[in-house]
Amino acid sequence: MERIEAVSGDSLPPPPQRTGLLHALRTGSERMARCVGLDELLACTLSTLQEQLDIGHAMVLMLDATAEQLYTVASHGYATSGVGSEIRLGQGVIGVAAQERTPVRISHVTNAARYSHAIRDSLDAHADAGAQLQRGMDIPYPGLAEPHSQIAVPLVSAGRLLGVLFAESPEDMRFGFEDEDLLVAIAGQLAAAIDLLQAAPEVTAEPQPATAHPPALSGAALRVRHFAANDSVFINDDYLIKGVAGAIFCKLLRDHLASGRVDFTNRELRLDPALRLPDVADNLEARLLLLQRRLQENSPHIHIEKTGRGRFRLCVLRPLVLEDA
């Protein structure tokens, strides 16, 4: 290029001036600082994005360091929550942000998304039976079918990667430099808060027995199948969960079937060698939240409810048959 010549024509209108962004950040920060549990913290973070920053589609993913992938624990703005859906490190905008530990912002995504979908369809068509079975256990990713803007910000605390905060939009150029700065600030507080909740003292005493009698069981028995190879769990042939959350679920069911027990603590799960849990940095609270939400969405006859800090209750409304495959 030797020179640039200006020509007459219409110019683009200046972008609308945005005001009150610092106040929005302050309001969201104050709300997040009052949260006392992971479930509340994630809900508060996503509602802050929606109400204060007008971000209608977002999700939080946590890191599974052992499997080198991320799993969705919370989302808003989508037809389905996608809780439990997984993304490998280095895969797409989210995976790259996690792998490189740096924000990734893209303003025109549609063509890349279509290419990615085409590649996935081609792999599915030529996959062997084992690979197709594994994909049958994949929980659908909740993202927009045709996003035009995306931004992914890593959650890092004390130098450790905890997960990713992700947002997207059907509009081109939705996220600018100021949006990135805001989301980096929010992600930093979210990561620090997760770390603090994770480090909080856990219950050391045995859980107290339930004060109320458990509800009478009725209806046909639920068939729960557990596959030890990857701790995947199916309820009446429908996939529920796998990995650490699947191992935890089966431990709860075994104890319940053996003694009728319903009350448990986070601490005893950490100390149970049979579960082969990763170290504390892998966030047991996130695994329990994932299991709780998958049960809410897929098995109305079994659910988990919190009964206090580090305590929870297993509620079973139908007879169970647990099979180890």
Rank of each mutant, 00 (worst) to 15 (best):
F312I: 04
P215S: 10
A65N: 04
L277F: 01
R18Q: 12
T265M: 08
R18W: 02
L320I: 14
A145H: 13
H256S: 13
A131I: 07
H117W: 14
D121C: 10
D54H: 10
P215L: 01
D179P: 07
L288N: 01
G37Y: 04
R254P: 02
A185C: 12
D54K: 05
L269M: 03
P14E: 12
V164I: 12
D179F: 00
E68T: 12
D237N: 14
E171I: 01
R120A: 15
L291R: 00
H126L: 03
L155R: 03
C315V: 15
I194A: 02
A325S: 09
G176F: 08
I241K: 10
K251D: 10
P201Y: 06
A210F: 07
N298L: 13
V184C: 12
I151G: 07
L161C: 00
T211C: 14
A325V: 00
P14K: 05
D255L: 11
I304T: 06
R160T: 01
A228W: 06
P154S: 04
P300K: 06
A127E: 00
G308L: 01
I302P: 06
D172K: 00
K306Q: 12
G90K: 09
V93L: 14
Q99V: 11
T19W: 09
T204C: 05
H303P: 04
V104R: 13
P13Y: 03
P201L: 01
P15K: 10
L252C: 09
T45N: 02
P15R: 14
P207L: 06
S259V: 07
V233H: 00
A212E: 15
L61S: 13
N283E: 05
R309A: 04
T110N: 03
P14Q: 11
V156Q: 01
F312M: 05
A325P: 09
L21F: 08
K242Q: 15
V224K: 02
Q189Y: 06
H57V: 11
H226V: 03
V316H: 04
I304H: 05
P140L: 12
S29W: 07
V156F: 04
A187R: 07
L314A: 00
V60R: 04
G308P: 02
D179M: 10
S218D: 07
A325E: 08
S169W: 06
L53N: 05
N298A: 13
R3P: 06
A212H: 15
L277I: 10
A24Q: 01
P201A: 04
L196A: 10
A79Q: 14
P147S: 12
V244K: 08
E40I: 08
A98W: 05
E5A: 11
Q292D: 09
Q292V: 03
S149D: 09
S157Y: 02
A199N: 03
F234H: 15
A191P: 09
S299H: 00
L222A: 07
P300V: 00
P142A: 14
S149C: 04
L89N: 09
G159V: 07
E268P: 00
P13K: 12
F166M: 10
T72R: 13
R293T: 13
G143I: 14
G246C: 11
A158T: 09
A167E: 09
